[in-house]
Write a protein that binds this DNA or RNA. Structure first.
Length: 112
RNA sequence: GAGGAAGCGCCGAUGGUCGCGCCGGGCCCCCGAACAGGCGUCCGGCGAGGAAAGUCCGAGCUCCGCAGGGCACGACGGUGGGUAACGCCCACCGGGAGCAAUCCCCGGGAAAGUGCCACAGAAAACAUACCGUCCCGUCCGACGGCGGGAUAAGGGUGAAAAGGUGGGGGCGGCGAGUAAGCCGGCUUAAUGUAAGAGCCCACCGCUCUGCGGGUGACCGCAGAGGCAUGGCAAACCCCGCCGGGAGCAAGGCCAAAUAGAGGAAGAGGGGCUGCCCGUCCCGAUAUAAUUCCCGGGUUGGCCGCUAAAGACGGUCGGUAACGGCCGCCGCAGGUGAAUGACCAUCGUCCCGCUCUCUGGAGCGUGAUAACAGAACUCGGCUUAUGGUGUUUCCCCCACC
RNA sequence: UUCCCGGUGGUGUAACUGGUAACACAGCAGGUUUUGGUCCUGCCGUUCCAGGUUCGAAUCCUGGCCGGGAAG
């Protein structure tokens, strides 16, 4: 199973972010908020992170990013169709909810 | 053994699996070929902190038609060192706290000037006025009023009242006399009797002078002066000393894109922030310097970018901060922002059970921490913090 | 990155050049009233926090915390 997560699987440009936000669909599974856009024919799915200052201090924000990236990396190849997704964190989430990132990610993928 | 005070450190270790970024190398792809570059893959190396934080100081570095003077403005403030520099550090001095080790101090000037010191109090700063007391003169029948003078040993206040403590005596008369002695008896308190200053003496404090010590802040000793001139400069201020401005979005290069098109103000504008002088640049009746408004384009990549006044070890100088020399190491470089996840063993800790010589030992479950994440780079400061190791010192108790 | 301003009852504001923390509304309690309203009285404060200067700090100084704003 290929579980790599290279840099080109990241959304890094402003216009790509705005396109996903404008034309994408949304799914909320606590503590995650996912905005995604299907891209048929693409090489693979891509991930963008939008974690603002309300989430916590720099250490806490880094923990959230790492947890979300790890869940995406593990299950990237098992997604039904290639798509771009932007994941942010619910403002109600506390730091104890980081452990629920992977199950929430799988649930969001199953709904889709 | 108990308590305390200063430092100096460490942030779990080892192995494995998967993953990310950078560097070096191998293979493969693109290409006519090579370089550069890209993609994939493999191997090796490196990959957050003592505060990376707050952005409070000081620098390096880069640019600004050189940066010059004066006034403003701002920062600092015992002395001597250290340093690239500092508002930092070290040592010492002075003051304060503590039995002590030790800790704390925005620690210059209040007889250069201005101002403030509420309430209370006679008075809050020329010891003068005021109230009180006494004497004299005058008015009045008297109480008392007015004027002048004397008296400082009176005036409950207040944060602060002209340095503090202790002892002596104080005033008038006699006496040659400011000495002794004798007589009278002022104020307060009920009598006896005691106490009473700015007077005298002693000590401490203060000021001045001289001598000695120290680079200096300052200290020690001796003498003199009864010693009229509070506190606040984290009030204005004065003195000394320092400061050109902006900041890696600095600044430079490449690529891409668009139309240097329209309107208004305009004789001065800008280079240093407020002003004056000086100096430099652009411009002066227009196709005008410059400023503003509306509209259009790009919001990609590379350099700067990590070697640092660097770390570690030794040695020498210095009380120390630190410096000289020698050896050795080469230590994160992201850019919608990498440094992560899981497993095993060991270590540490909490809880439960069992054994026990009450020191501990074994087993099981759980946790592996608090504060916290580099963004051009250093030197500091400040703030946030859970454990833990170790060194030195002080005080108390017990024993030898 | 650079710079500026502010923080006072629950809310909105005062407090001169340091000297008793004041006002309005709201809330609560009591009184007046047959009841309600009006009216009267009382209560409600770590002056954002911690130090310092001072006899005395909301005010002055230093360091934090939080909020807001300006320029590029």
């Amino acid at each position: 199973m290929n579980c790599k997560f290279p840099r080109r699987a990241r959304i890094r440009r402003k216009e790509e972010f705005t396109e996903v936000y404008r034309r994408g669909s949304r799914v909320n599974v606590f503590p995650l908020r996912v905005c995604y856009l299907q891209r048929p024919g693409a090489a693979g799915s891509r991930l963008g992170l939008a974690i603002g200052k309300k989430t916590g201090n720099a250490v806490l924000r880094n923990r959230w990013k790492r947890a979300v990236r790890e869940a995406f990396r593990k299950h990237r190849r098992r997604l039904p169709a290639p798509c771009d997704m932007i994941i942010s964190i619910s403002w109600k989430a506390g730091k104890e909810d980081i452990t629920r990132v992977e199950t929430a990610f799988l649930e969001a993928m199953g709904i889709r």
